[in-house]
Nucleic acid binder design. Structure first.
Lengths: 358, 358
DNA sequence: CTGAAAGCGCTTACAG
DNA sequence: CTGAAAGCGCTTACAG
């Protein structure tokens, strides 16, 4: 039972074994005739008039019933309800909306960077939650930080007359956004903020978060704390760095250049950087890793150096491995779902205020 | 520069330092008067008639121009274009759709389990990509596997007359879905499949994926291969297990009970399970971890046992740490973005076939 | 309590 | 090349 090459380890990283499969049901091919059976006739969706005809009432009465307006005699209501059920009638929200003019928000548009990224997916989740609670639905799209894509998405959403827009800004025209705001579309920015556009913004308090991280380490007696952060030209990264530096200064701790590394790198690159910065004769006693992938890279480096129980680490955001690494890592989570919720609440607040005002 | 408690490590796991912040712009409060300035008048959105009036043409001409229909003299077109720009006119897609009857798909509804989960977020990303390429937009919502939520979402989407539905099935009524399909809404199921509903399905070929994983290890000379998998009552988990077992049998390798562990556990629990199963006197020489969190837990266990270079591991799906762990892990990725793309392509195919047929 | 008219913003036929 | 009419599916006033 011992393998012939027990000591070998498969080392290929991410072998690409794609295996998507499409199972086509017979039903889907029936747009063309098969074995002589008649093509299924796609019955046109029943309208309020179809229901009225079937129930033998005026279409206005149907409208009253399906909208629960009341003022309809029980007998008529019963007949209408029956016809609705038989025909499988469903109100067309588009038509309602078109006529209704001002009514509570029904659709929110969310422009984000990339839904496949857990952070943005969580933002969407939070928005969705408050939207759903109010019968509201969410349209979303990824920009990959392209101003052009952002413009297209906003165009598409506005064209569909969303009641409000939540956007993780990617650099599209401030003038266009201001025009849209002036035109009455409520906009709330999330996470990233454009200059020259006056609108509400919901974001994490990165400065305070970094302060907490560093204070946490100071409280445990550390004074020689390294800091690995994202490229400081990114506003949030800079705020985190400032939070760290200010906290260190206030505590009277020295901050040296070689203990503070910032830049835009992959997890693998950060592993290398951490190996160099922490694998020195007198390493810091603790390190703040101010971003997800930096945390992952640094954890790997600490374990390789065997220093995972010697150098304390506090990271930002949740990480898969937080739960299984020994010892566990302390992190300052960003709570993106909460961020999304707050953005949606703010949007609907503004949206409602406007509706009420007309 | 040496910390006073250099040896200590902060061990709290995930300290909750939430720090969402709302920055309200002055603009947002202007729905009520402030410092005597007049409330901004929300100009009503300009319609095709407003543009016509401004350009001094009939509204039908405006329609022609904004739809790029041609058959309009250059002079008129120029006047219309100018008026459109001045007024910031945008076609109302809702109204277009209402009148147009049959036209290419414009909105897709996607019902998933949880967007905050990277797998589902990636599915959405894939759908979005093919949708966007065709001027189509995506409405999505999370069910958390609640049949009730699923029904509500489908209702909301159908009410808005989406041109098609992609759903990761969560157990809502098959009868309702069949009725909707009969009514003409194209539906494609993704990942999970309902019984008693005839519709297309796009999913990973879990059996083939597991086969590949196990074959990969066999090819490297392993014969004593352990298998850690999700609860086998989950269809996909069962397919993976079968793929593994069949491959082992075909290769003439023995499979014992203690080498095959399945069940629904957290990453931390899997770590414990792996420690027990692999920390035995004569451990297997390789292990297949058939799911994301199982992989994470097992990696942690192997490193703790110091067996990460002795026992080979092949996992399923991508994992954050795949990139940084030493040695790197081999994984069979599921390519959720690709799955999403295929589902959307299939949906639009069916949708188009129907449109053409009317 | 019930219904006929007008209109939401657009497009689809149909005339000139 | 240009436009007046009718209608998409519904709701909002207005009458009975």
């Amino acid at each position: 039972m011992v393998a012939s090459c027990g000591g070998s380890r498969v080392v290929d990283n991410v072998v690409s074994f794609g295996h998507a499969t499409l199972v086509t049901s017979p039903r889907a091919d029936e747009t063309t005739l098969s074995n002589g059976r008649p093509k299924p006739v796609l019955t046109k969706r029943p309208t309020i008039r179809d229901v009225a005809e079937r129930a033998g009432v005026s279409f206005k009465t149907v409208s009253r019933v399906v909208n629960g307006e009341g003022g309809v005699s029980p007998g008529m209501k019963a007949r209408v309800d029956e016809a609705v059920a038989e025909l499988g009638f469903r109100l067309d929200e588009r038509a309602r909306n078109l006529r209704q003019g001002e009514s509570p928000a029904t659709t929110i548009g969310f422009v984000l960077v990339d839904v496949a990224n857990e952070f943005f997916g969580s933002l969407l989740r939070g928005i969705e939650e408050v939207a759903t609670a109010r019968q509201c639905v969410v349209l979303s799209g990824s920009t990959d930080r392209s101003p052009e894509r952002e413009r297209q998405l906003i165009d598409a959403f506005v064209g569909r007359r969303v009641d409000g827009l939540i956007v993780v800004y990617s650099g599209s025209s401030a003038a266009a956004l201001n025009a849209e705001i002036a035109r009455g579309t409520p906009i709330v920015f999330l996470d990233l903020e454009p200059e020259d556009v006056k609108a509400d913004l919901v974001r994490s308090d990165h400065y305070a978060g970094a302060k907490l991280a560093t204070e946490h380490l100071l409280k445990h007696g550390h004074v020689d704390i390294a800091y690995f952060g994202d490229d400081s030209t990114v506003v949030s990264a800079n705020q985190r760095l400032l939070g760290h530096l200010d906290t260190m200064r206030e505590a009277g701790c020295e901050v040296t250049r070689d203990r503070t590394v910032t830049g835009s790198h992959s997890a693998g690159e950060w592993r290398t950087i951490a190996l160099e910065a922490l694998g020195v004769p007198s390493p810091p006693t603790a390190v703040v890793t101010a971003q997800n992938i930096i945390t992952v890279g640094t954890v790997a480096a600490l374990h390789e150096l065997g220093l995972q129980r010697t150098i304390a680490q506090v990271g930002f955001d949740d990480v898969d491995l937080a739960a299984v690494v020994e010892p566990p890592i302390t992190v300052v989570p960003q709570r993106p779902i909460e961020l999304g919720r707050r953005a949606a609440e703010q949007l609907l607040l503004v949206s409602r205020a406007r509706t009420a005002h007309r």
